[in-house]
């Protein structure tokens, strides 16, 4: 009786553990990861399946487990996941070309409206003042909408910037943990180049936003003056409060001080670098350069059960 009791006492905990683990298996028959290697393998599977958010979390867990053999590969793939997340954000975000074109169109309309308003005020012609006022109001609305669109695009770019900054640091960390891993060093350089382009784009969008804001403010002042000149009976109809200053602080995704320390593309010496607003062509070219084309695929560590061997990964 006594040996039987002893056996039960010793075997019971093992039985319970095994049954818990069996219960924990989900419908897809995947055992939840426990060790660093498990997290890494699961993350790699998700990375291959383009589930970058979940893959990032799993890789973070793998890194946090502080398992020396697994950590360099986990950090490397974490960089991949973050970079891919940032690229996805840009892809899913507003079309940068359209936003840029919209901004320029609104800016051009605003400029025209300002000129017409100034001309009408100078001529002191009532009909022209009314026409200029109506045009100005429409142009201001357009500017406001365009500013919102640019701000939304900047927010997306700002989030991408944060992801890519972290991705670049992850690749550098992977290279530091495993100096033989030249892929990590190369990837870090590539991400930094993309970051520089992104920062350039953000600065240009910021400049465009600032220019549009100023234009809207100027237009607002002119509209105010026009309205003051137009007699009450002749005043054009409009929604109340539309003429008021809309002081939206423009919740941009990125503030100027956040871009401090970011390395821009160094301007070529002697090359004319106009700080003016971008033309649609210029903006399109820059933003096009950021899109991931089909010809460039990111190499991933897709070998389960073994961390990526240094030097054997494909070049980015």
């Amino acid at each position: 009786m006594k040996p039987f009791t002893t056996i039960i006492k010793r075997a019971l905990p093992l039985l319970l553990a095994a049954s818990w683990r069996a219960l924990a298996v989900d419908a897809t028959n995947v055992v939840p990861p426990v060790t660093a290697r498990d997290f890494y393998n699961a993350g790699t599977r998700l990375l291959a399946g383009k589930k970058y958010d979940d893959a990032e979390k799993l890789f973070q867990s793998a890194v946090a487990a502080q398992d020396e053999p697994v950590q360099p590969a986990a950090v490397y793939n974490l960089g991949h996941a973050r970079f891919a997340e940032g690229a996805e954000l840009i892809k899913k975000g507003p079309d940068a070309q359209k936003v840029s074109a919209r901004g320029h169109a609104a800016s051009a309309a605003g400029e025209q409206a300002i000129r017409r308003s100034e001309s009408a005020l100078a001529d002191n012609n009532l009909d022209r003042m009314i026409a200029a006022y109506l045009e100005g109001r429409g142009a201001r609305r357009e500017l406001r909408d365009a500013e919102k669109a640019v701000a939304a695009a900047m927010e997306i770019y700002g989030k991408t910037l944060q992801k890519w900054q972290r991705a670049a640091d992850d690749f550098k960390s992977a290279a530091e943990l495993n100096p033989a891993d030249t892929n990590a060093t190369q990837n870090a350089e590539i991400v930094e180049r993309d970051l520089a382009q992104l920062v350039d784009s953000l600065r240009k969008m910021q400049a465009m936003l600032g220019a549009m804001g100023k234009q809207r403010a100027d237009l607002g002042k002119l509209l105010g003056r026009l309205k003051g000149q137009i007699p009450g009976p002749n005043a054009p109809p409009g929604a109340p409060g539309e003429d008021g200053e809309e002081d939206d602080n423009g919740k941009n995704g990125k503030h100027p001080e956040d871009l401090v320390g970011q390395k821009e593309n160094a301007s070529l010496q002697g090359k004319e670098e106009s700080p003016s607003a971008l033309s649609p062509d210029q903006a399109g070219q820059i933003l096009e350069g950021l899109s991931i084309d089909g010809g460039r695929r990111l190499s991933m560590s897709d070998q389960e059960g073994r961390p990526l061997q240094p030097g054997k990964g494909r070049n980015w």
Partner: peptide
């Protein structure tokens, strides 16, 4: 006219603007 000033030094002890 087109003088490009020195680049921001990279240092962990200072924030440079």
């Amino acid at each position: 006219t087109r003088f490009v000033p020195p680049e921001l030094p990279r240092t962990s002890d200072w924030q440079v603007i």
